[in-house]
Design a protein around this nucleic acid. Structure first.
Lengths: 158, 158
DNA sequence: ACCTTATAGATAATTATTATCAATAACAAA
DNA sequence: TTTGTTATTGATAATAATTATCTATAAGGT
């Protein structure tokens, strides 16, 4: 996990980019994050350390990491993109449409399957994405425990 | 394929919605389309028949079909969403990042796999999405045939 | 310490999509 | 067939995430 930060720092320096305190703080947050935060959420965390930091700076750092292939971006329809700077390789996700949590199941199956499928179709794969949308166990529990007939709130669209 | 149009028409009427000529034209285009068009592309096709049609009307019809579960929406980061009104069930896609073509491979594997995986994790699945991004066979050929060193144009981001 | 230039911060611009609203037309009922 | 209700249309404004712009600043090599 500290390794991951070092990898990011190294990649940044290798390409002649500079390490500002703000950028360093952003890298640290992204390297440690397992919750697939939005840019806005990263921004809020950075501001705790550097109150003067601009949202644009977070966007620019994320863009930089995308170019280096060191961050995984999960874009959705209307919602803000979610980012994984901890594990930038494509991997499947379980996405709760109620609370927005994104889980990383351990599915060894998807290590080789995408490439095999694409090879079969003569398709030169450069990326892939596997998302399962639904209600996570925690939200199912919250629902079943509820004694009122109060609706649980409309789920997000994704 | 004519069946598909009838299904859409029926779904629309069932829910008390009205069938205007514009809406009918949009349904016809979406029912027949195998190319995963954008709203803009549907709009252009509709205008050939009804030049006064508004882009907003296409958006509204697509939204309606989404609510009915009769159209599959593929949202991407920056790009416009692509739509499949011909086969609205979730299915895997091969997406060319160079020409934008979206192919539907026949992968029986993905009929049951998503549900099995989610069951295993206690995740109540309501939707899923499997996308493979890369260079389609046609674009690979165009590249290898090219004798000049002219770059093939930057691929889109998706 | 100096110099070059990438980066920060603030804000304007972009763009797909959605909301608004008055005029019109679908369609059920008389 | 005519009528009445109201969903829909078309035009345009609003929204919101992301990107572009631009000047002052500071990173990092010399």
């Amino acid at each position: 996990m500290e390794d991951r930060l070092q990898t990011l720092v190294q990649k940044i320096r290798q390409h002649g980019h500079r390490l500002t305190p703000q950028r360093m703080a952003i890298l640290r947050i992204l390297a440690d994050s397992t919750g697939h935060p939005t840019v806005e959420q990263v921004y809020e965390q950075v501001q705790a350390q550097f109150p003067m930091t601009s949202l644009a700076t977070v966007y620019k750092t994320v863009t930089l990491l995308k170019e280096e292939g060191e961050i995984l971006e999960l874009s959705f329809g209307g919602e803000s993109s979610r980012y994984d700077g901890h594990n930038p390789q494509p991997h499947p996700h379980l996405i709760c449409i109620r609370c927005g949590t994104i889980l990383d199941p351990d599915l060894a199956l998807f290590n080789d399957l995408p490439r095999e499928i694409c090879d079969k179709y003569g398709f030169q794969m450069v990326n892939h994405r596997v998302d399962f949308f639904g209600i996570c166990p925690a939200c199912q529990q919250a629902q079943s425990v509820s004694t009122t007939s109060t609706p649980q709130g409309k789920e997000q669209e994704f």
